[in-house]
Simulated scan of single mutants.
Amino acid sequence: MMRIEPGLEFVYEAGGELGDPVPIGETPDGTRRMIPIYEGPVEGPKIKGRLFGGGADWQLTRHDGVTVADAIYAIKTDDDVVIQIRNRGLRHGPPEVLERMMSGEEVDPAEYYFRTVPEFIAPTGKYDWLNKSIFVCAGARFRNGIKLWVWRVT
């Protein structure tokens, strides 16, 4: 039987400013918090624009130390199209690396795992190709910001 292996096509890099975490508290699943997502640049071969302020990441830090991201935000493209994104995934690493990150130290993203699966809701037209593929993302978290690299699975 033949086997097909998926490939990756780079779509964009995004950088966003983040607000201070808003603690929600301890729950049966772990500790919950909300992090506001503000504006930032989006640059790539197929899409350019800005993160549209007003989104948030509703995070859960599980008892095993894994942070589950569930972010909803939007991109406003350079040609004024608004694209909604729901980006879900996982961030974890050695406790000492995560402690450095939480204290505000800039940590090399190769020292921890931060991967997500963005889902796009784009209007019919130039960007409706975003509705028709699976995407993966690698991320880096900084004191008051985030960097995301997004690929389309081919």
Rank of each mutant, 00 (worst) to 15 (best):
E5K: 13
G7Y: 07
L8D: 03
E9H: 09
E9F: 03
Y12C: 14
G15V: 09
D20W: 07
P21Q: 11
V22L: 15
P23W: 06
E26D: 11
P28W: 03
P28A: 14
G30N: 12
I35C: 02
E39M: 04
E39F: 05
P41A: 12
V42W: 03
I47Q: 01
G49M: 13
R50I: 10
R50C: 08
L51E: 03
D57M: 08
T61R: 09
R62Q: 14
H63E: 15
D64C: 08
D64K: 02
G65Q: 04
V66L: 05
T67E: 04
V68N: 07
D70S: 13
I72Q: 13
I75G: 01
T77M: 05
V81F: 08
V82R: 11
V82Y: 12
Q84M: 12
H92V: 01
P94R: 13
E99L: 08
E99D: 06
E99F: 01
E105F: 03
E105Y: 01
V107F: 05
V107W: 00
P109I: 00
A110Q: 07
Y112K: 00
V117G: 11
A122L: 14
Y127L: 05
D128C: 10
W129N: 08
W129I: 15
W129G: 11
V136I: 14
R141Y: 00
F142N: 04
F142R: 11
R143K: 15
G145Y: 00
K147D: 04
W149P: 00
V150N: 00
R152E: 13
V153F: 00
